[in-house]
């Protein structure tokens, strides 16, 4: 269990904001932090990992106090058992994949964990390559493996897949779920991609102005699974066009663009780039053998 109960006054170019958090995350859960930019998501990850010191409050992880303002306890980032993966892979360019992973080992730690991780995220073919010769997805797999070398209890993913294309993203999501389960991790994801959040997490917290304004189970949160439409995908609005009295909205679903006819009010409420559910009842689609 991760128990966070703290406040921190944050200053940014847009003025100041009070980060005021009360979170209880169960061990083994996969949670997502969701919200607009500047809502306090990354700051939440930074106070948890010790990169940012709260003004007041406590952080207790599995019974161990990581931070207590009153008792002046503040474990260093190195003492907190956290693996951190950013959008930017931050690998050492002059080291091979294996060297990057082994560099993360603690003194006296057995190298067997490296081989174990290499097997799970399937990096065996790239061990002697330098990061610059790998694709973005392969580099992010190395970063994911490296974050787990020290056997952290918590895995933090801050927009880890934003720089990847859809196919790569989908594959990385599988690896993330694999390591989450294999290492019994408590994983905290920050993402703007609703499809990704629904696919990966059990529980979602929505942050706004430094506070949790809404939380819920992933399936309920976006009110997606809770209707009788069975033919359902998430996608991104890429084009809106008026055709006579109706509107045609083009939605990027995976690698395909689908077109959906909508009425005026729905179309006018949408903006290019919006994440949407495309849904229909199971009765409508037709199937044809290819």
């Amino acid at each position: 269990m991760i128990e966070i109960n703290l406040t921190k006054k944050l200053r940014s170019t847009g003025g100041s904001m009070l980060l005021d958090l009360e979170l209880k995350i169960k061990k083994g859960e996969f949670v997502s932090l969701y919200g607009v930019s500047g809502a306090g998501k990354t700051c939440t990850l930074r106070v948890l990992s010790g990169l940012l010191t709260p003004d007041k409050g406590r952080i207790v992880v599995n019974g161990t106090t990581w931070f207590d303002a009153g008792k002046k306890i503040n474990l260093s980032p190195q003492q907190r058992k956290i693996g951190y993966v950013f959008q930017d892979y931050a690998l050492f360019p002059n080291m091979t994949v294996r060297q990057n992973l082994e560099f993360a080992l603690q003194k006296g730690q057995s190298k067997s964990i490296v081989d174990n991780l290499v097997a799970i995220v399937e990096l065996g073919d790239f061990l002697n390559r330098k990061p610059s010769t790998l694709s973005g997805g392969q580099q992010q797999r190395v970063a994911l493996a490296r974050a787990l070398v020290q056997r952290p209890e918590i895995l933090i993913l801050d927009e880890p897949l934003s720089a990847l294309d859809h196919k790569m993203r989908s594959k990385l999501q599988e690896y993330i779920l694999k390591v989450h389960n294999a290492f019994n991790l408590t994983t905290i994801l920050v993402s703007h991609n609703i499809g990704e959040i629904v696919k990966l997490s059990n529980h979602i917290y929505e942050l706004h102005n430094g506070r949790v304004v809404r939380e819920g189970k992933a399936l309920d949160f976006f009110n997606a699974e809770r209707n009788s439409a069975k033919f359902r995908f998430t996608g991104e609005v890429i084009h809106i066009e008026k055709e006579e009295v109706i509107y045609v909205v083009s939605v990027l679903v995976g690698n395909s663009v689908v077109k959906v006819v909508t009425d005026r009010e729905e179309a006018l409420a949408l903006t290019l780039g919006d994440q949407v559910f495309v849904a229909s009842k199971a009765f409508n689609p037709i199937l044809e053998r290819i």
């Binding site: 009110n223 809770r226 209707n227 009788s228 439409a229 849904a279 009765f283």
Partner: peptide
């Protein structure tokens, strides 16, 4: 009737 989607 198959065109009506129900949502709570």
């Amino acid at each position: 009737m198959n065109e009506l989607i129900l949502a709570p």
